[in-house]
Write a protein that binds this DNA or RNA. Sequence first.
DNA 1: CAAGCGGGTGAATCGAGAA
DNA 2: CTTCTCGATTCACCCGCTT
Lengths: 371, 371
Amino acid sequence: MQRKTVGVAERPAFADTIIKGDCVAALEQLPSASIDVVFGDPPYNLQLESGLTRPDQSVVDAVDDEWDKFASFEAYDAFTRAWLLAVRRVMKPDASIWVIGSYHNIFRVGTMLQDLGFWILNDVVWRKTNPMPNFRGKRFTNAHETMIWASRNPNSRYTFNYEAMKAFNDDVQMRSDWLIPICTGSERLKDDAGHKIHPTQKPEALLARVLLASSKTGDVVLDPFFGSGTTGAVAKRLGRHYVGVEREQGYIDAATARIAAVETAPAATLELLKGKRSEPRVPFGALLERGLVTPGAILTDARGRHQARVRADGSLESGERVGSIHRVGALVQGFDACNGWTFWHVHDRGQLTLIDDLRKIVRDEMAAAGA
Amino acid sequence: MQRKTVGVAERPAFADTIIKGDCVAALEQLPSASIDVVFGDPPYNLQLESGLTRPDQSVVDAVDDEWDKFASFEAYDAFTRAWLLAVRRVMKPDASIWVIGSYHNIFRVGTMLQDLGFWILNDVVWRKTNPMPNFRGKRFTNAHETMIWASRNPNSRYTFNYEAMKAFNDDVQMRSDWLIPICTGSERLKDDAGHKIHPTQKPEALLARVLLASSKTGDVVLDPFFGSGTTGAVAKRLGRHYVGVEREQGYIDAATARIAAVETAPAATLELLKGKRSEPRVPFGALLERGLVTPGAILTDARGRHQARVRADGSLESGERVGSIHRVGALVQGFDACNGWTFWHVHDRGQLTLIDDLRKIVRDEMAAAGA
DNA sequence: CAAGCGGGTGAATCGAGAA
DNA sequence: CTTCTCGATTCACCCGCTT
């Protein structure tokens, strides 16, 4: 009997590389129809003019890089059209694309996507737990960014890991608004002097949810504005391949070193949930995003009689039993139902911590954001 | 001496009426620059092709009205351009406009707003507590809609009730994501047979927050797609005037009856919290005149690291630095700017008193005198 | 060592009014 | 038009140092 490699393509030669150069020109090096998912974080065209200071007179370190300067909306539209066309050529017919932006540019991106025949599947709102305040009290706090998720054309059979997203979100459908902190602390790349390497580094939690939702292991993910390489780091961690395009050597160097330090999660933890399920309540996935629980971690009950392994999508596995924290908790005990939050514990330096206690930490964040 | 009616315009003849007709044609009846705020809920261009059914095969009562059909994106853009231009003509120079939409149309609306020279202030996300689930399991639950808030041009001095919004939000700045339930229950207008009268009736809570944020009592609010009249009902309740444009007599009748049943809230409850900006200006010299500060007195910052002497004309001197309380405050700290009121303190019997607190005394005197 | 305090910072289209 | 002055305005989180 022959083994069929269903959905497991050969790893292409360009996989896991960063191509130096302008987005459109560099993409000509890639063959047509070779990419499974695209994540694009293009310049936002902020067009900031005067400096901004906080009430304490400290200066806000704004985005003032050359790559964010455009002469007009027309120029930005031409730029957007060009890179979207170049990206579409290398997308497989069933590939999908994500583009992130703010109100400065996202409406133009969305219009261009529609005009070029892409098919919008969702607009997804990244709600920031800790946005920068509005220092002048003249507008609402700009507390979110928008991602557009679109397929290559209206008939694409794009990947959407519905059950995995549902398990991630504690067995209710994943919504179009995601609450995730901005990239700070040790995750934020800094140079020897402690200055941030990239002005707009995205949080890995955001990319992780994007890739878990819309790609399979072994897929090739293209990021045409690679920057500090968040897409590549998360792709590698989740067992996907990446291709990056980046103009500046400094970013390429930083991203290369960053990705080299990433380890791919064990294959078993990357299996996505497939079947049907049922049960309620607050996202276990958020604990993973916050790093309070890591994929591959072992959960046990209070007396250590049962154990289960955490998978990257927030589901658990214990032997052949797979499902949400509630479902697996019920299965290992032979019960019909179980509140996973008050059943499972994590080990941390010899201590047992109830995951419900970890949830309290996240709840405080959510409460702070008005969730 | 003549009494000036500052900020209290005459109630125009068209206030609190619904004009029947097509949006663009109907707006020609209104004079230029007569509207303070616009809320537009245009057709979303949903382009649903086949009927949607739930998992139990029941039929979803979706939007399928004639007004939501457009032949192409070009046709939708032409429609959008036309009504936005008509609306802009009747907007006062300092008016602002809200447009609500979903990913089907909001990118085209946003692009057109920018192309026509409107100035986007925020995009605000209405997060639905109870959105319709995604029945097919092929996408994220569409759990939000997007509102664009824009001023007529980049230099408009639009209304934003910052302090009121902050108080509304537990004393932290109002964010760009609002969590509000969809319109259901008794608020949802239904006919005698129990069928909903309008397919996309917006919740009053949404309009209330919009109008509380961006309008003043007595303002005239235009809704060019009046529908079931939510904008009018909320405007009346909050002491604003409304003008509606609506094509269908059925909606006009329903809205008219609905608004007639609304009572305007007592004026006292409609007063908005105001910040320092709207309080009467008190020059530092007034503190000298009142004897609250005497010439020759030494002012210091909170920690006593900087000091300055008060001169008879209300200026300060600190070494060779001379100027206003603000200028000298900035100079001694090496800043470009400083609010002297919240920086300098006076010594009084061993106590440090912020000069801003002394200003409050003067303001209270002025208020008591009816100034 | 835990708790508390001070300092720093993040994709931001961030005055108003008089002269 | 421009230029100048007055003076209003910040939330969540991380890090490091002190108590």
